[in-house]
Design a protein around this nucleic acid. Structure first.
Length: 310
DNA sequence: CGTAGACCCTGCGCGC
DNA sequence: TGCGCGCAGGGTCTAC
């Protein structure tokens, strides 16, 4: 279901309703996800207030803080530093205290079929509802995932970059440090097909099976072309195409092929703007009119125009 | 080392 | 109507 645009749309839709609300109770119903849900860890969120929603790659991050006993907790966190006699500049102690006491982040990944929706607190348990987060406002944040490729865990806010799920992630395509030069540098020494290269999360994050095909179509690059044989200037075109297609998709609420919906249940409508994905046999829409072809790369369906894309 | 493929799991639509 | 098959937007692990 979700690539970067869908997760971003979800983040935006949930930010206003969630920030300032508080986790009351966390109900784990079916712990069977890609990694088993850890009830005790998730229940550490209870009593915490949502501060901010962020996104990293295809992960949605719910930052919380403000426990009910902040003074005691802060003291607990900072005392060992003083006792150890290693208290450096004041700011270091404060940062450590904040990371250890205030900052807990709920990390969510929707896998292929995950859905995160805000429902009434007394809404009946849904099929495949793995975990429900009861909120002080009386609502419930419901996480369903039939295929169980998703993920939900809690980590200290300050340590996220070092977490094993994040450590090897590549560059954010919508960030300021993503451009053709960066992409070309990442391609050096590699021979993978352009599509595999784009979908490798250790290279660029957030580009999944739909948007890889779409970006390559816009950049007129054949999905099987080895990145070793892409001219330097074409990486500028490719980087721009990746950014554009992701931005366009976000603007249109993401792609709803089957069941994607934002936090309030709204479908996206970028699927009508897809140029090639899922359009085998249809004419090349914006250029030559040749029939769109479907091939398989690394076990994933790949769509392209055999005439325009080289 | 980088790359290709299998695998994890359930649900859906299709053709027979 | 019912069944088997292929396919589905994710990441990870293994073998080459």
């Amino acid at each position: 279901m979700p690539e970067l645009p869908e997760v971003e749309v979800l983040r935006r839709s949930l930010e206003r309703p969630l920030v300032g609300d508080r986790f009351d109770a966390v109900q784990v119903h079916f712990p069977t996800l890609r990694e088993p849900l850890c009830g005790p860890a998730l229940r550490r969120l209870q009593g915490r207030t949502v501060r901010r929603l962020r996104r990293r790659a295809k992960y949605l991050l719910v930052d919380t803080g403000g426990e009910r006993l902040p003074h005691r907790d802060l003291a607990d966190a900072t005392d060992p530093i003083r006792v150890a006699g290693r208290a450096g500049p004041d700011v270091v102690g404060k940062d450590r205290g904040a990371a250890a006491s205030g900052g807990l982040t709920l990390v969510l990944h929707l896998g292929m079929s995950g859905r995160l929706t805000l429902v009434a607190g007394d809404a009946p348990l849904a099929a495949h509802e793995h975990v429900g987060f009861d909120l002080a406002s009386g609502r419930r944040l419901r996480f369903c995932d039939p295929r169980r490729f998703g993920l939900a865990f809690v980590a200290p806010t300050g340590d996220l970059d070092g977490d094993r799920h994040f450590r090897h992630l590549g560059v954010e395509p919508l960030g300021s440090d993503f451009d053709g030069a960066r992409l070309a540098a990442l391609a050096r020494g590699r021979r993978a097909p352009a599509k595999s290269f784009l979908m490798d999360a250790e290279t660029v994050v957030g580009v999944g099976n739909i948007y890889a095909s779409e970006a390559l179509y816009r950049a007129r690059i054949h999905p099987r072309r080895s990145v070793a044989r892409i001219a330097r200037r074409r990486f500028d075109v490719l980087a721009a195409a990746v950014r554009e297609v992701l931005r366009d998709a976000i603007e249109q609420g993401g792609t709803t092929l089957n069941d994607f919906a934002d936090g309030e249940g709204n479908s996206g409508y970028f699927q009508v703007s897809l140029d090639v994905y899922g359009r085998e046999g249809e004419p090349c829409p914006v250029r030559c009119g040749a029939r769109i072809r479907r091939i398989v790369i690394s076990n994933r369906s790949t769509y392209y125009c055999p005439r325009c894309q080289r």
